[in-house]
């Protein structure tokens, strides 16, 4: 077997397997990488994302912390200043409220306030998102809050291959990255993952489905994280009706791939934006403002927004009505396609 074919080798993995595989690879590549958080070492993480790391890399580099989110984020600042590459885990993004002052006030500002004395190569991993009947405060989509904090990069993979490529990029990035993993997709999303070096650059959206020439599509849907999968399912529903849908996975909200957004809107003119977060002040609003700035005169219909509602993330018997599903997304696409 040639080296070239080795480099091209892939394996079908779940997103969770891809994350675990990448953490192993990055810790092996760089001995400054440290993984720490609640239950990440002996237990391998509550979802097993960090399975096997303790055995492979030892208790100095894979560390169970006290149950204290602020000090998990806060010690990452000091570790970075000491020259380490911290990869802390917040067990669920909803728990990051208890670390918000450290993430927003300290992690995000360290480079700026020291005028570049310290690099901040921190990757904070956190699962989020609904649909799996978790208790309260496990499912919140908080990406918009964090995207409003200058200094952070916000990364949300929607496939196993991207989970690898974006996580490896995040760990090697000199800036702090919030790496948000869709917990509903951990085992549901499965695809071919390159086994060798695989880096996905930040700020480059991915076309999940659509015509070779965007002008041949009727509607473009912008989404991220698990809403990419929901949007893909909605697009498949509409194929029978003859509505050609382009689904674009933004991958990273900060930095944002404005060029792809502009190009798609100019070519297609009809846009749906999908987010799981509450409607008001979500990142969808920012996207619509961006479309307004970049391609307003290309629009042939109002930009539609599909989102959660302005209610706290609800309990299990209500959540299927709260989280956008393929039916709601398809309805919005249908309206947008037919709008005069």
């Amino acid at each position: 077997m040639s080296l070239a074919s080795d480099a091209a080798a892939t394996r079908t993995m779940t997103m969770l397997e891809a994350i675990n595989h990448t953490l192993h690879a990055e810790m092996a590549r760089d001995d400054r990488v440290m993984v720490f958080g609640e239950d990440v070492a002996a237990n391998g993480g509550v979802f097993r994302a960090t399975e096997g790391l303790l055995d492979a890399f030892g208790e100095d580099r894979v560390v169970d912390t006290p149950l204290a989110e602020a000090v998990i984020a806060g010690t990452a600042v000091g570790l970075a200043a000491a020259g380490m590459v911290p990869v802390p885990e917040i067990q669920f993004l909803g728990f990051s409220y208890q670390a918000f002052h450290q993430i927003a006030g300290q992690v995000a500002r360290l480079r700026y306030r020291t005028r570049g004395r310290f690099d901040v190569p921190i990757t904070i991993r956190a699962p989020f998102g609904g649909g799996v009947r978790t208790p309260e405060l496990h499912s919140e989509s908080l990406e918009a809050q964090y995207a409003n904090i200058p200094g952070l990069k916000i990364v949300l993979p929607a496939s196993a291959a991207d989970a690898k490529g974006l996580l490896a990029t995040a760990i090697r990035d000199p800036d702090p990255v919030l790496f948000l993993e869709p917990l509903r997709g951990y085992r549901m999303l499965r695809d071919e993952v390159p086994l060798g070096e695989h880096l996905v650059p930040f700020g480059e959206a991915r076309t999940v489905m659509g015509a070779d020439d965007p002008a041949d599509d009727d509607v473009v849907v912008f989404a991220w994280s698990f809403m990419v999968e929901m949007s893909r399912r909605a697009a498949e529903l509409l194929a029978d009706e003859g509505i050609r849908v382009r689904v674009v996975d933004l991958r990273t909200l900060v930095p944002l791939d404005v060029d792809t957004i502009r190009t798609c809107v100019e070519a297609i003119g009809r846009v749906v934006v999908v987010q799981e977060a509450p409607e008001t002040n979500g990142f969808a609003s920012e996207l619509i403002a961006t479309i307004n700035d970049e391609a307003f005169y290309s629009l042939e219909a109002p930009v539609a927004r599909v989102s959660g509602y302005d209610a706290p993330y609800p309990v299990g018997q209500l959540e299927d009505s709260y989280v956008p599903d393929a039916g709601r997304i398809a309805a919005a696409i249908r309206r947008t396609a037919g709008a005069a």
Partner: peptide
Amino acid sequence: TQVPHAVGLAWGMKAR
């Protein structure tokens, strides 16, 4: 907030 930073820095020095 500086106390967690100090502990992280000390942890890193120890690790190194």
